[in-house]
Nucleic acid binder design. Structure first.
Length: 423
RNA sequence: AGAGAGUUGGGUGAGUGGCUGAAACCAACAGUUUGCUAAACUGUCGUACGGGUUAUACUGUACCGGGGGUUCGAAUCCCCCACUCUCUGCCA
């Protein structure tokens, strides 16, 4: 959520930034926000004055009672009825205005950072970099959905029987590849100073609001009705929420966490011809890195995270490219996002395997996540996160790119984790 | 799941209707003393939103798990909810 104060003080920057997201009504909304905030302040000033008056009278009554001056106390008491009525009116108004303001602020996405290109869709994303060699495969190469059947390592039909479409069953070497990748990713993060956590994969409503999944993406999450808990769409939710309502010391920054969790997404209405096999699932595994930084350090951290993720892709010997997302394609809460895509040679297309974002203070404002230096006032921290990495499309690319007519070779870094070197 | 007891500031913990934003102790921070460390002593030591100021100072209101109620006045009384602990039951 954007800070009203920030909108006020940086009006033009905020306006221009938000316009990169193609929001036609945004100027109107910003004006309304400022107007409502003025109204809010006016109400509060009025309410505070009335309340102060009321408090003074109550105090006086107390003193009079103590001195045994019952009659005088009773006389003053009558004055309070009027003030009470006034307070109630102003308070109702105040609350109403605050709610309107909050509702409006929830509709405003984060302001894209300067370097973010304007644009409407994925077409307008900027290719920052491309690395690795796109393999030329033999005649008769297969997409991964055929490979997994051929080698019997992932079974979608069994998943349908147990749960439904989009819930694959990994078997034998397929299951071990999952486990190997998770361990490999966690071990690598550890070497870069990330602290490993294993969070709950069901979260409450407050957590959903904290990182911005609610109220925006309500329909994208599975919900356990009886206990009012959401299944997490990403480990970002529980891990970042560990720091909800926390004031950390400046010296504790940056905080770097890593965690593996399964992720659950309803993906309502997003199924089509190009999402076969592992390309889009309801349940998948992901290792997520999260950083909490000082505001001055967040863009350096974003680069560091991007470099780290690229390092993983290099070790896995996968050709990849890095995109800087345009305003129109970027997530609601992000100020800048890099997407990493690997080339999957069986389908001949790029697949998004990681998204690394800086949220600046947008999440921190909702989370009330702040840092403090010495005797100074607490200030909002910056939060960042990134997939490092999401498994299914990595698996798809490994299978497709390394296939031979006689088997599939596994990347060298995984051999010790797998206990085998090909499928 | 049933019964009972709880939830107060960074921590321990006092406080049963007004002078309590909240005792005391601990921790933390600053200073004095000290050859160094330690100890002792002194002081500071919550958050949010307003007003005010170039910025401080100063100042108003709210906050004692969350929400509602009673009252001129609530940490304190009443109701609802959440969570924690103990016992019983169940269980990987």
């Amino acid at each position: 959520m954007l800070l009203v104060q920030h909108i006020r003080e940086n009006y033009h920057q905020v306006l221009l930034g938000l316009q990169k997201r193609n929001l036609p009504q945004v100027e109107n909304t910003l004006q309304q926000v400022l107007a409502l905030d003025d109204k809010r302040k006016a109400c509060q000033t009025q309410r505070d004055q009335l309340q102060a008056e009321s408090n003074a009278i109550s105090k006086e009554i107390g003193l009079l009672m103590k001195e045994g001056k019952q009659a005088e106390a009773t006389a003053i008491r009558e004055k309070t009825a009027l003030i009470k009525g006034q307070i109630k009116d102003v308070e109702d108004e105040h609350e109403h205005v605050e709610q309107q303001l909050k509702a409006l602020l929830y509709t405003l996405p984060n302001v894209p950072q300067e370097a973010v290109p304007a644009g409407k869709s994925a077409e307008d994303n900027e290719v920052v970099k491309q690395e690795g060699v796109i393999p030329t495969l033999f005649e008769g190469k297969l997409p991964h959905w055929d490979l997994i059947k051929k080698y019997d390592i992932i079974d979608f039909d069994l998943g349908v029987k147990i749960a439904g479409a989009g819930f694959p069953v990994y078997k034998g070497k397929g299951a071990r590849l999952q486990r190997a990748l998770i361990n490999f990713f966690l071990d690598q993060a550890q070497t870069q100073g990330y602290f490993e956590v294993q969070p709950p994969i069901l979260v409450n409503e407050d957590s959903g609001y904290g990182t911005g999944q609610l109220p925006d993406k309500e329909g994208q999450m599975y919900f356990a009705q009886a206990d009012q808990l959401y299944l997490i769409p990403t480990a970002e939710v529980p891990i970042t929420n560990l720091y909800r309502d926390v004031i950390v010391n400046r010296s504790d920054l940056p905080i770097k966490n890593v965690g593996y969790t399964p992720c659950f997404r309803r993906e309502a209405g997003s199924w089509g011809a190009h999402v076969r096999g592992l390309n889009r699932l309801h349940q998948f595994d992901k290792v997520e890195i999260v950083q909490i930084t000082h505001p001055d350090a967040s863009y350096a951290a974003l680069e560091e995270m991007s470099t780290y993720v690229q390092g993983l892709l290099k070790m896995l010997e996968l050709p990849y490219r890095v995109l800087r997302l345009c305003g129109g394609d970027m997530g609601f809460t992000s100020a800048m996002t890099y997407d990493m895509e690997v080339y999957s040679a069986g389908q001949d297309r790029w697949l998004e395997v990681s998204s690394v974002s800086n949220f600046e203070t947008y999440q921190a404002n909702r989370l009330k996540l702040r840092w403090k230096e010495e005797d100074k006032k607490p200030q909002l921290a910056h939060t960042l996160n990134g997939s490092a990495l999401a498994l299914p499309r990595i698996v798809a690319a490994i299978l497709e790119n390394n296939q031979t007519p006689h088997g599939i070779k596994m990347p060298k870094v995984l051999h010790s984790y797998l206990g085998f070197d090909s499928i």
